[in-house]
Design a protein around this nucleic acid. Structure first.
Lengths: 186, 186, 186, 186
DNA sequence: GATGAATGAGTTTTCATTCAT
DNA sequence: TATGAATGAAAACTCATTCAT
């Protein structure tokens, strides 16, 4: 078994279950089934561990979502695809969502560069630019566009994880991405 | 001089500046200009203090936003008003936003009732119900509607606070609430 | 109402109910129905308060027990009387017993002179001397005599307060003082 | 080097030297030669530590005293033996005595079950029952018998530790146990 | 590589005492 | 006299990190 992976998974689970505030190295070690000292063989310390995990998730997310992007297809198709892939990513591993949210809203928690918090939005930016160029997306400020795409996704996943809606139900994702598209398309 | 209020304000400032993770009683006391022991005259402990602050902000928010609601006016006007008031609330005291975000995304951080996390959405729910009844709001699932309203607001404020957009610019709020209205109206 | 007395009674009750360990000035004030600061009008501090209470109880005890002593009566009668009065003293105000016990066994708790711990034994010493002189009490070392008198009294009161025996039952005290007399008499 | 034992011994010494009231974790750690945090590796907290020590001493006491009990021997011999062993136990480690006394007279100090305070009396109970059955011990209520045995022992040890008598002097223990025997025997 | 006991600085919390009213 | 809010030093306890094994 890969201890490094076990440690990262352990952090993910614990942050989701109890929050950053209650996270500590002993719990991480126990959950991962390793000794406390072992963590320091793979990470410089708590901060390094958290940042490594964040980077990992962001990379995974971008890979997953961007791989569905096809320059040959129309913007709308790419948009639908992107929304669906993003949702799928979080539904497949809901702990990722909670972790990213907490990491993002803990200012300076781990000396993180503020701008990197928007790294996750890369796929959205790509799509927005293309859509505006082709004239299929409304010509409103980028910030508002971003808000109309990223915001609803965020909330809908939260609602899903809180069991206020069920995105796995047939047609649910479709309904959602169409609603968002209507909000931003010409 | 109200020491209780000073302590609460102090928490708000510190959570915003350094995050929950770096919050500690000594800093709170110093920032509030009181002795460490004084905090315990007004609050049972750290947990109680945080929860009290959360409750206070939620109440303030709801009062501010709901007071602009006028049953005699059309849903659209109320909606615009509500959005503007909510934005104003956070722009006037940005620390409130950061605090609420961090509190909300720290699961079980302070044993908070999960459902209460949606208390802040009361004004939105009120408006949604009325708009659907009158047929001016699209007949899509509540969860999606909620996502299309709450999500963008959340993101736009975040963008504003991160200086990626400026909601104080003339016409900015108007542009935003109109875009959201277009997303949800028939 | 005499606040000073109320404070002393409050200490007595609290020490009995929760022990020295959990005693604190706020509780004392609350129980006595006065403000915390008021205690310092009557006592220099916690230590002074405790010591004053101890002295008061010892005096009361000696007055009660010695007043029953009659030089004209035989030693045995005085002994019976003394035992009964001592028991009565503690049964009438059981908190006194618990307080004295805890005070006595907390070495240096309040810088008390070690020898004073035996002040309570004055009545016993008086009786022992007289009895030995008259030849009605066994000629064994004083320490052993003391042990045979003070020890059983102590234990029997403890057993009574713990509901393991009932000294209020008719004839109970008589049975007890006769048993002790048999242990020490010639 | 057993740190857990060192910590327990340290508490014993400190309680004897300064009393429960002045006991604190820093002192315990220093006296034991460990870091303050180390105590928490072995005990949940102060309360747990104190209770563990009490349990340990009670067990040790009972083992020491009961191991001298021989069903084949007459009650009187067993009684003498028991008294001597009990005295020896406390004289060998006087801190045990002081600790037990303070623990016992601090009501609810550490939420201890009241009845357990009488666990130490097990050896005495055993002997009493046997003696009464054989008719060598006076037929008086158990509580009084207990008072006549336990009480004097308690007091004599206290007197010894206060240097008012010397139980190590040749014949001293013998004189004492014979006096107690006379008090309870037919 | 792996362990987990040990550390001690840092944190939360308590509480005797003071003092402005 | 009497109050009780406020203090701050000292107490209990936590936990990231180290290091001998």
């Amino acid at each position: 078994m890969d201890k490094k992976q076990a440690i990262l998974k352990s952090v993910l689970k614990l942050v989701n279950r109890e929050g950053f505030y209650h996270l500590n190295m002993k719990k991480i070690a126990q959950e991962a089934g390793v000794a406390a000292g072992t963590i320091y063989l793979y990470f410089k310390g708590k901060e390094d561990l958290i940042n490594a995990l964040y980077g990992m998730i962001v990379n995974e997310f971008n890979q997953n979502v961007l791989e569905g992007y096809d320059d040959g297809k129309p913007v709308k198709a790419n948009f639908f695809n992107m929304i669906d892939l993003a949702i799928d990513f979080y539904l497949a591993e809901p702990d990722n969502f909670s972790f990213i949210e907490q990491y993002t809203y803990a200012p300076f928690l781990f000396k993180e560069n503020q701008d990197e918090n928007f790294t996750l939005l890369l796929p959205i930016y790509k799509m927005m630019r293309e859509g505006k160029k082709q004239g299929v997306i409304r010509n409103i400020p980028d910030a508002i566009l971003l808000a109309l795409i990223h915001g609803p996704m965020n909330t809908i996943i939260k609602l899903h994880l809180a069991h206020k809606t069920d995105l796995n139900k047939k047609g649910a994702k479709q309904k959602f991405h169409e609603a968002v598209w209507q909000a931003i398309s010409v």
